[in-house]
Design a protein around this nucleic acid. Structure first.
Lengths: 212, 212
DNA sequence: AGCGAATGAGTGAACGCTCACTAATTCGCT
DNA sequence: AGCGAATTAGTGAGCGTTCACTCATTCGCT
């Protein structure tokens, strides 16, 4: 085939201790393209960022972008899928790790989001601001952290750990308790690390779940 | 002056009984431009929508857009300010109307958001998806519903209606309980009216405020 | 006839993307 | 180990297209 091979985003392995986030931090052109695109996309939105600007910031030629990604849109999607997929794994681990303890599960999931928001703020903000573009439901097989949470809430309802109700609505409300503060921080409403508020937000999230 | 006069968005008066939302529903070219732009902006994002597409949908010539708005960006901002300003008024009324009853104030504010989300879904979704573009803090004098909520929470804390804590964080968490379900509905996760869930969400929002 | 509102072809700038080419690396064979 | 062939990564000028916006003209109302 004459088609260029696209190897996908240089995802950091979970074991990559020295890594600041989901995107590989080595100095390869691909990693630099990803990081440059991420920063610009998060700041101005995908459509407002030119491939020229990405290339300049990454210190590569414009054409090099297309050695690794078939299009600007595909680059944007790869970045989104990277953080989305990583959150899926983290939420999965958090829920599994808490066993049958529902309160612990909620606390762990909240902690996952707080830590992700702090660890790589740019990446998380990109995720927040582009959920509407990429996060629509309907792609089966695509990892979906929310689906995991909904499932756990359903389990909690049958086991009596949580009052009955619409699990999707409860999940949304509980998630909102964490994501909206992240959005507010992004808007400049406060500046402390979300991780400092993990306990408080975990309590609030659980309270919302039980009240909704 | 040789400058075209721009009269601003045709906001519906609150007394306009037959009006479906914030944007005037009469058949003037300006109203049709606003509605067309709103629908397209909400569906695809501002940058992805062309002035040609707006004009076509509104049934006017492309040049007519510029008789009413100095630029596409200004049109987009006017639409955002319209819904943002309207929410400010509604939240103000809700809080004032509840007097010293904090629980009632929370319930009323939640009801305001739920009703706004249902009354003109397109407008509310445009608001949700473009908060990141227009909603950054730092423009004093600009109406800001969240600031109202923060103020009311501070009052509740001094009056003992709400445990002490960071009011900005509490406000964000409480708002998240409502806005995230709106976002999830937008993403296709469920389809019922948010107004049906006002009571449930009001309870959850209050619980989050008290637990955070 | 007069005049503001509306028009839509036209404009220059800027966009995403291509492609012919070079440089560097890996491969296969002896 | 040595060496030419093959493959891949990187380049940047340039392409065709599309965009937001303009303005000379037309429309429609009094």
């Amino acid at each position: 085939m004459s088609q260029t091979r696209h190897t996908g985003p240089a995802l950091a392995a979970p074991s990559d201790a020295d890594n600041r986030g989901v995107i590989a931090a080595d100095g390869t052109p691909m990693a630099r393209i990803e990081r440059a695109a991420l920063v610009l996309f998060a700041a101005s939105g995908i459509d407002a960022v030119t491939t020229r600007a990405i290339a300049t910031r990454a210190g590569v030629a414009e054409g090099s972008i297309y050695r690794h990604f078939p299009s600007k849109e595909a680059l944007a999607r790869a970045l989104f899928d990277a953080i989305h997929g990583r959150l899926y794994e983290l939420v999965e681990d958090a829920i599994t790790g808490a066993g049958n303890d529902f309160e612990a599960a909620v606390a762990q999931v909240v902690a996952v989001y707080c830590e992700a928001a702090d660890r790589d703020r740019t990446l998380f903000e990109y995720h927040l601001t582009h959920m509407f573009r990429f996060g629509r439901i309907g792609s089966p097989g695509r990892p979906d952290p929310t689906a995991l949470i909904v499932k756990r809430i359903n389990q909690a309802m049958t086991e009596g750990d949580c009052p009955r109700g619409d699990a999707e609505l409860k999940a949304a409300a509980a998630l909102g308790v964490v994501l909206q503060p992240a959005a507010h921080r992004m808007a400049g409403r406060f500046s402390f690390g979300l991780s400092q508020q993990t306990d408080s937000l975990a309590r609030a999230s659980l309270a919302a779940l039980r009240a909704a």
